[in-house]
């Protein structure tokens, strides 16, 4: 339960922190940390407008997106705090729930018969397909490393005998990149872009409004918190006292958000056709990590 509460709290801050970092770095006064949530709350209280062409899918898909991301967050451990749902092979359910959310996003974007939304959908489907192996390769590496089959124990890297902070950092790096790709942030996609042709996530929700848009945004905040918690779990020793873990967890989350903010401030986005290369590079780094783990375990 603590894990879920921590994830929830994180999801309140991360998006705001990113925006705040960006505004400070660019020398603007900028909105407060809670501004993204305030926007969402406004959205939740607004009425709904659907496209004339759209049918039932537009009406239910956002809800499924939200529900599946929310359920997938039940399986995420937070530095030693056990998740609510944990069983052997839960990472498969986790990855496939995220995929279910993607499936629903894509078909919802086609429902309005738009000439733009399919563009984002096409990219989302392709990038999602390309990045999925990275997560699984990391997990395969961790399965060898820890001999466990559940997210709640797999990410207890610091408890292992051969642990070295370097593993934690590499895994954090890969998961960080997965976060950027899954959430369509710079350098894959720029959430602040104004041009439909270059959007990924934003273009898919062009015809989504009010409550539906609100819950889709909440789902994306959740996704940040989920991946952030995974990163925190790989870095923080699980056997520390409770208050230390919470403090360190908060520190890691803030650092994570600030780093994303910095990346978005100083890095430009890739040309669309360079993205695939970038995503494959991330996947290959995860394969490298896998090989390194094989070496540490003397499997060669």
């Amino acid at each position: 339960m603590t894990a879920l509460i921590l994830i929830l709290i994180t999801s309140f801050f991360t998006a705001g922190l990113i925006v705040r970092t960006k505004s400070i770095v660019s020398g603007r006064k900028g909105p407060g940390v809670f501004q993204p949530w305030k926007n969402v709350l406004v959205l939740l209280r607004k009425g709904l407008i659907y496209s004339e062409i759209s049918g039932i899918i537009s009406r239910i898909a956002p809800v499924i997106v939200f529900a599946s991301v929310a359920i997938s967050s039940l399986m995420i451990p937070v530095a030693g705090f056990k998740p609510l749902l944990s069983f052997n092979g839960d990472f498969i359910l986790f990855a496939y729930l995220v995929a279910l959310a993607r499936f629903m996003m894509i078909i919802a974007s086609f429902d309005s018969g738009s000439s733009f939304e399919g563009m984002g959908a096409s990219r989302e489907a392709l990038y999602g397909m390309l990045i999925e192996p990275a997560l699984f390769v990391i997990i395969a590496g961790l399965v060898i490393f820890t001999g466990q089959f559940s997210l709640s124990t797999l990410f207890d890297l610091p408890g292992e005998a051969n642990y070295n902070l370097v593993y934690g950092l590499i895994i954090s790096y890969i998961i960080g990149n997965i976060t950027l790709i899954e959430n369509s942030r710079v350098p894959v996609d720029d959430p602040k872009t104004h041009l439909e042709l270059t959007m990924i996530h934003e273009v898919m929700v062009l015809d989504t409004s009010g409550f539906n848009l609100g819950i889709i945004q909440i789902a994306s905040f959740f996704k940040f918190a989920i991946f952030g918690s995974l990163i925190a779990s790989t870095l923080i020793p699980w056997n520390l006292p409770v208050h230390w873990r919470i403090i360190l967890f908060a520190a890691v989350q803030i650092l994570f958000a600030v780093i994303i903010g910095l990346i978005e401030s100083f890095r430009t986005r890739f040309k669309m056709n360079r993205n695939q290369q970038y995503i494959l590079t991330v996947t290959l780094i995860s394969v490298l990590l896998f090989v390194v783990i094989l070496f540490t375990k003397n499997i060669f």
Partner: peptide, 27 residues
């Protein structure tokens, strides 16, 4: 998942009860 889905649907119906659901042209 199913329960949450139904629950959010109900919440949505409640949240937008004051408005008429409108339709408009695709962007």
């Amino acid at each position: 998942l199913l329960f949450l889905f139904v629950a959010v649907l109900i919440i949505r119906t409640y949240a937008v009860r004051k408005y008429n659901v409108k339709t408009g042209p695709t962007w």
